[in-house]
Write a protein that binds this DNA or RNA. Structure first.
Lengths: 129, 129
DNA sequence: TATGAGGGTTCCAGTCAGGGGAAGGTCAAG
DNA sequence: CTTGACCTTCCCCTGACTGGAACCCTCATA
């Protein structure tokens, strides 16, 4: 398989696939003409990576997850721990965003949104002046 | 005021303040020795920027907000629109993160987390194989 | 046989919002 | 006079790609 095929079958852009090779996540063979030559296992790995990235895991997490996946003697505890740490980071981000959302929502609610200059949003940003 | 004073009074790192000057958000004067020389208005602007950034506005949004703030003849509608657009982006991010959280949470719940290799998280990532 | 389309390759630069650190100038205190 | 705390500019680094330039390969068509 050439990179275009793997790209459409995995849903990942060709650029991303080349990047993943660059950083050592996959190691496709090369054809005589220099083209990358992907096996089914490469495609499978890329799909794995795509799903892990979609769950928000960092590239380094993905590297670890792949290693665990390929390690038949892994302990599921290791996978779970990684997932729990990631879950905690997601929760922290949600909490941050929620706080912004609540604050900004309040300010927006108080803003007339008309042609006059008076605005509680700017008043708040300027330090209640 | 030197940059150290402004830094501690605004809560922004000196690096950040220099960066904000670099991209034209503030224009402090210079003393004879080449040091930046901040007026109270600069400090006020930096505090404004710090609060806007804390609400998650991008630097470009901050630039617009500052311009609106300094424009006495602004329409609060313009401020409100910017804020509403930002609010929508925050909501979209929260929704994304929440979806990740829910999916990953389900997978984690099903994972024994013991010394055995069997793991629903990896099974899901590998495509249910 | 030329040529054009549509693959593929490498490498460089840019994104966003700064952070880290080097090399060097300035200032007040001891 | 020296020490230490400031300040300056400069350049590289981050994550996870994305865009583009310049060039090569293959196949179909005129």
């Amino acid at each position: 398989m050439n990179i275009g095929d793997v790209s459409s079958r995995s849903g990942l852009p060709a650029k991303t696939i080349r990047y993943y090779e660059d950083i050592g996540l996959i190691k496709p063979h090369r054809s005589a003409n220099g083209y990358r030559c992907f096996a089914e296992t490469d495609l499978h790995k890329l799909a794995f990576l795509g799903r892990a990235r979609a769950l928000g895991f960092t590239i380094e997490d993905c590297r670890t997850l792949m290693a665990l996946y390929e390690d038949e003697s892994r302990a599921s505890a290791d996978v779970k721990q990684l997932a729990l740490e990631h879950l905690a980071k997601i929760e922290a981000k949600i909490a941050d965003l929620q706080a912004m959302h609540d604050t900004l929502g309040e300010l927006v609610k108080g803003c007339a949104g008309d042609s006059r200059p008076d605005c509680p949003i700017l008043r708040d940003l300027s330090g209640e002046g």
